[in-house]
């Protein structure tokens, strides 16, 4: 009894403690500081928008790149792969989830950044002339670099959940599609994907949740600049990473409280998204 309900208590206690510790910030600034664009702890100015923008931008980049890859791997494993290699391939993709995020960060800095440099330069020179979000000059560590590594990190999450959802699509649907003369892709497109839709949305939201909360890998790759810039090739900051980086150094009580307040926003958003996603996935699998 206790072992079970204590978990609910722990979650509730988290909200209470975060609210309690960050209360002076909410009391002093209301909700307005969330959309403040300027972050200067030394001057007592706390605007959270640069971090919110950074978190959203890196997560969106991660989803744009990661979702097709994750869905592709899940479909390959559940619909295309010969029975013999299904298990090994899904096991290998699951292994991506077992790699600690700090190792993604280290690998990202040393291996991925140099590889991305020419890609960023090319995109900045071509698309960047017309589209401001691709504008150069690329700065090395950037929203884009963090987003690319995040994309790899969320692939196993989205892939594993959608795989489970695809498995629940009845075999009859596939056989019926083939009997009607569908190609394999048409079977997937018209037979498997429609009933799995809610589950896919849920899986993507779970992936998004992981991306929003990811801390050290993003911190190492995002550039740690608390300003809002138009280009995804410039440096920035994210909510989780600013907490990780400034929490230990904060001298002013209000600075610490502002960081916890940012954390509370992040916490509430990810919990709500997880609840919503679990409901969707649960319904899809039922």
């Amino acid at each position: 009894m206790l072992g079970a309900s204590a978990l609910l208590l722990a979650l509730a206690l988290m909200v209470v403690r975060f609210l309690q510790l960050s209360w002076p910030v909410w009391k002093a600034h209301g909700l307005g500081w969330i959309v403040g664009t300027h972050w200067a702890p030394a001057e007592g100015i706390f605007g959270a928008l640069p971090f919110i923008v950074g978190t959203v931008v890196t997560s969106v980049i991660a989803l744009v790149i990661g979702t097709p890859i994750a869905l592709g791997t899940a479909l390959f494993v559940s619909e295309i792969a010969p029975a013999k290699i299904r298990r090994p391939i899904s096991d290998l993709i699951d292994l991506l989830a077992a790699v600690p995020s700090v190792i993604y960060g280290l690998w990202g800095i040393i291996v991925v950044l140099p590889l991305l440099q020419p890609v960023e330069q090319f995109l900045a020179d071509s698309l960047g002339r017309f589209i401001p979000i691709f504008a150069g000059p690329p700065s090395g560590t950037s929203f884009f670099a963090a987003g690319v590594v995040l994309a790899i990190m969320i692939v196993p999450t989205i892939s594993a959940v959608t795989r489970e959802v695809f498995v629940t699509v009845p075999q009859d649907v596939r056989e019926a599609a083939f009997a009607l003369g569908a190609t394999r892709w048409e079977m997937i497109r018209y037979g498997v994907l429609p009933p799995a839709q809610a589950g896919i949305v849920g899986a993507v939201i779970l992936g998004l949740g992981r991306a929003l909360g990811e801390t050290v890998a993003v911190l190492l790759l995002i550039g740690q600049i608390p300003s809002i810039s138009k280009s995804i090739f410039s440096g920035g900051y994210s909510m989780a990473s600013v907490i990780a980086n400034e929490f230990g150094q904060s001298q002013e009580p209000l600075h610490l409280q502002a960081l916890i307040a940012i954390g509370l926003v992040l916490f509430v958003v990810t919990v709500l998204m997880n609840i919503f996603a679990r409901l969707l996935v649960g319904r899809a699998k039922a």
């Binding site: 988290m14 909360g213 954390g263 919990v271 679990r278």
Partner: peptide, 19 residues
Amino acid sequence: VRFFAEVMTGVPSIMVGVF
């Protein structure tokens, strides 16, 4: 409890640290 245990696995680990 089952539901919120799953939700809790999605809590950003940095916030577990802050807690």
